[in-house]
């Protein structure tokens, strides 16, 4: 599962990780700030349910970042 974000620096990444820490393990997510879409991808071993993915997406929006599913 991959998302497009507006994260620009490690500060944003740290903020996003903290904002989703109640829902999922933040270490299961990988950020690529060099990509054009500033992608955020799921790399966890457990399969990710759509429900959790929605919650993650919402939490990040609530935290004030832009996010959309790719």
């Amino acid at each position: 599962m991959k998302f497009k974000t507006n994260a620009m620096c490690m500060g944003c990444v740290a903020a996003i990780r903290r904002s989703i820490s109640d829902i999922t393990n933040p270490a299961d997510w990988e950020f690529d700030l060099n990509s054009d879409d500033k992608t955020m991808s799921y790399i966890g071993s457990e399969p990710l349910s759509d429900d959790v993915a929605d919650q993650v997406e919402n939490a990040i929006r609530v935290a004030g970042f832009k996010i959309s599913r790719l």
Binding site: N6, A7, M8, C9, M10, G11, C12, A15, A63, F65
Partner: peptide, 9 residues
């Protein structure tokens, strides 16, 4: 805060 986006958030 490390960039303008953080600041905006």
């Amino acid at each position: 805060m490390m960039c303008a986006v953080c600041a905006g958030v």
